[in-house]
């Protein structure tokens, strides 16, 4: 579960921290992907993992399109919020109109498989989500920290002018990153669709949680996102087992505020503000 949360948060974290674009429409992509997965299974009996392959290029393209729109219109950060919200509404409305407001759930052959680990029950799907989540996060981390491209990106964020002096061109890399983040959100969506039921309204419901993950992590920090996802997921599960389940969300937010009070920049302490 932690892995899934991490995955959900990393897209937004990148866009926000690295590129200062508060794209609150990202969760919409998550659920758009969930819907795509559902329909491909329902209509063509595609395996969800197969859907990932479909989802990746599509979301990348859409992400690029949105980036260029934002770039061309030279939107300021404050207005960005509005614009992103506008996109969110467009996606949500589109999904409701196209696929009705019904609740959907994806069920596959391996949906109910679970492993016993001592007293713990580990559902296969969640395990997969975790593995994929960690894998992707690890990949991104590697990308950012070790590769040339990644370092270039971080250089731009730290000091744009100097970076440009060194020949790093933000205009090439930014669209790619934006697209990448979109892809990440979508992949997360595939797994969300597998694990939970969803409706077009799910975007709104999850928005708060995803924001919490991102902030808890600290903007732009990959390690942080991972840790944050884990912590929140763990907290939810534990509270759910002890207290009436209703309080588990509550506890997540309390944890968020607590951590922020101690470390205003999130877990990793890094911020690209």
């Amino acid at each position: 579960m932690g892995g899934l949360y991490g995955l959900l948060g990393v897209g937004l974290s990148i866009q926000w921290g690295v590129m200062k674009i508060a794209n609150v429409a990202l969760p919409a992509f998550t659920f758009l992907a969930a819907y795509v997965t559902f329909w491909s299974k329902h209509l063509y009996d595609f395996d969800p993992f197969f859907s990932i392959i479909i989802v990746i290029p599509i979301s990348f393209v859409i992400g690029l399109a949105i980036y260029f729109f934002l770039h061309v219109t030279k939107v300021k950060p404050l207005q960005m919020l509005l614009v992103a919200f506008g996109f969110l509404l467009i996606f949500e409305g589109g999904m409701t109109a196209a696929w009705t407001g019904d609740m959907r759930a994806i069920s596959t052959v391996y949906s109910e498989v679970a492993y016993q680990l001592g007293t713990f029950n580990i559902p296969l799907v969640r395990l997969l989500a975790f593995v994929v989540g960690v894998g992707i996060l690890g990949l991104i981390y590697f990308l950012f920290e070790r590769t040339y491209v990644g370092k270039g990106i971080r250089a731009i964020v730290d000091n744009r002018t100097v970076a440009m002096m060194y020949g790093i061109n933000p205009h090439r890399t930014f669209p790619a990153i934006f697209g990448l983040a979109t892809v990440l959100a979508s992949v997360a969506g595939v797994f969300v669709g597998l694990t939970y039921s969803f409706t077009p309204q799910s975007t709104f419901i999850w928005l708060g949680k995803i924001l919490a993950i991102v902030v808890l992590a600290g903007m732009g920090s990959i390690k942080g996102v991972f840790a944050a996802g884990l912590i929140l997921a763990l907290a939810e599960n534990i509270t759910g087992s002890i207290l009436p389940v209703a309080w588990s969300d509550f506890v997540s937010y309390i944890i968020l505020i607590f951590v922020l009070l101690i470390k205003p920049m999130g877990i990793s302490g890094r911020s690209y503000e």
């Binding site: 039921s197 759910g240 087992s241 389940v245």
Partner: peptide, 11 residues
Amino acid sequence: SYELSLADFVP
């Protein structure tokens, strides 16, 4: 009694 947004019923 659980609330609307509960998604995970495993616990």
